[in-house]
């Protein structure tokens, strides 16, 4: 499992929303509710969406980077 995860790489951080403030940088703290479960969920969703989107972008546009 660990080896598999290592090969697939990992999501380091997911920042939701975009910063609406022209003077400082905010972070959505509602993820702190519900213990660690919500943050775990957020990471999983970020990972799934990113993999899906990158695969799709790759097939649509060829090499991404």
């Amino acid at each position: 499992m660990n080896r598999k995860a290592k090969t697939k790489g990992s999501v380091l951080s997911v920042r939701t929303g975009s910063n609406p403030n022209s003077s400082s940088l905010g972070v959505d703290v509602t993820w702190l509710l519900g213990g660690g479960v919500l943050v775990g969920l957020l990471t999983m969703v970020g990972q799934t969406l990113t993999r899906w989107a990158l695969t799709r972008a790759k097939s649509k546009h060829g090499q991404m980077d």
Binding site: G9, V11, S13, V14, R15, T16, L49, T50, L54
Partner: peptide
Amino acid sequence: FGGTVSFRRPEMLVMVDHAFL
């Protein structure tokens, strides 16, 4: 550290490591 992917919808920035890419 790897790369950053920006989504307009849903609004989010996802930072991933090299292996992920």
